[in-house]
Design a binder for these strands. Structure first.
Length: 350
DNA sequence: GAACCGTGGAA
DNA sequence: TTTCCAAGGTT
């Protein structure tokens, strides 16, 4: 059965399956556009199971758009701690503040306007428009590209950005004008549960429409070019305490890797001892250096091989650093590698 | 348009 | 262990 000649039957089969089989997720229990926006940002490149507890905590802490707009950025980052891609959190708050200032706290309901908001790209725009406002707009994510590439046997490389336009055009032609929310979510739900990289075609509600299944080529799709191997950066971390037992930390720059997150002193050099490096780089004398923890931290595009130490000093904090009490350190937003070191350091100290 | 931006789970 | 990746966006 050719999908292009049977669009209405396809929509019906997809939406009926979705309404019958959809998972019970927190953001599917609300019609609050702000809550849906939050969920869509958290779900970017992140698994449902990972997002659920973060979503629940975030909505409890910032129940309304106004609450988030008025929050301190550090509190927002703290709620994002461990979730990754931390600029999402900062951009979300920036976008929410734009809605308060420019749109009277009402999230705009056109692609034109909502796309101007910080952190809202083509996917998130379409997702919020269709799910929260019922606007028939495309929301093309990795799931949709996988599902559609199989249904229509599209052999374009989805690693190339402009390939996405093909899928957006297809969706605008296929989308159900009466229930774009269930249509878009149905495609994503299908991609997440049935039309997975290793597809379960016998359970698929729309396999009769699927050209790849017809040809037995579903496992070949979508086509995706390889990416290059990542870099490895050796790193030494030194957890330094002063005579009051406070901890030396600094905030990372506002842009780039782990932007605005807090960390202990780090040096990209494993050939020299910590005492020498501290003297050379900061003119600082540290004593009682003890080895702490060695581990590897893998980012999406690079790897840190970390060796860490604890040490003591009676000198002032170097430029850009501050000493914090344990209670203060606990409250600072820290990325996962620093959380590991922080936990280990606390264990070892008592 | 390619490179950058996290994390943890699964194959 | 290695690889891939999961409801992408920004620069």
């Amino acid at each position: 059965m050719q999908l292009i000649d049977h669009k209405e039957e396809f929509r019906k089969a997809l939406i009926e399956w979705y309404l019958r089989e959809k998972r019970d997720l927190p953001w599917r229990r609300t019609s609050n556009p702000y809550h849906i926006w939050v969920s869509e940002v958290m779900l970017q490149q992140t698994r449902v199971d990972t997002v659920i507890p973060y979503y629940e905590r975030f909505i409890s802490k910032f129940p309304t758009l106004t609450d988030l707009a008025q929050a301190k950025e550090e509190d927002v980052l703290k709620m994002w701690e461990g979730l990754g891609y931390y600029s999402r959190g900062r951009n979300l708050q920036a976008g929410v503040r734009e809605v308060v200032e420019m749109y009277g706290s009402e999230i705009p309901d056109t692609r034109q306007e909502i796309s101007k908001l910080k952190g809202v790209g083509p996917y998130t725009a379409g997702a919020v428009l269709s799910i929260a406002f019922g606007v028939p707009e495309h929301a093309v994510d990795g799931n949709v590209m996988r599902v559609i590439s199989r249904l229509l046997l599209i052999e374009e490389d989805i690693a190339i950005p402009k390939t996405k336009k093909i899928f957006e055009t297809v969706i605008m032609d296929l989308i159900d004008e009466d229930d774009p929310s269930s249509f878009n979510q149905g495609l994503m739900e299908l991609g997440a549960t049935i039309c997975t990289p290793n597809p379960k075609c016998l359970l698929c509600p729309v396999r009769d429409f699927c050209e790849a299944f017809h040809e037995g080529r579903q496992r070949e799709l979508p086509l995706k070019s390889k990416k290059m191997k990542m870099k490895t950066i050796p790193m030494q971390v030194c957890v330094i305490r002063n005579l009051q037992g406070e901890w030396l930390m600094k905030q990372r720059p506002a842009t780039g890797l782990l932007a605005n997150m807090w960390e202990f002193l780090m040096i990209e050099d494993v050939r020299n001892d910590i005492e020498v490096l501290m003297k050379d780089n900061y003119g600082m004398t540290v004593e009682r250096v003890r080895h702490l923890l060695d581990f590897k931290h893998i980012f999406s595009h690079l790897t840190w091989t970390i060796t860490s130490h604890v040490a003591v000093t009676d000198e002032r904090a170097p430029e850009g650093f501050e000493f914090f009490s344990s209670e203060q350190v606990e409250r600072l937003p820290k990325a996962v590698p620093m959380m590991k070191i922080w936990n280990e350091a606390q264990n070892k100290m008592q």
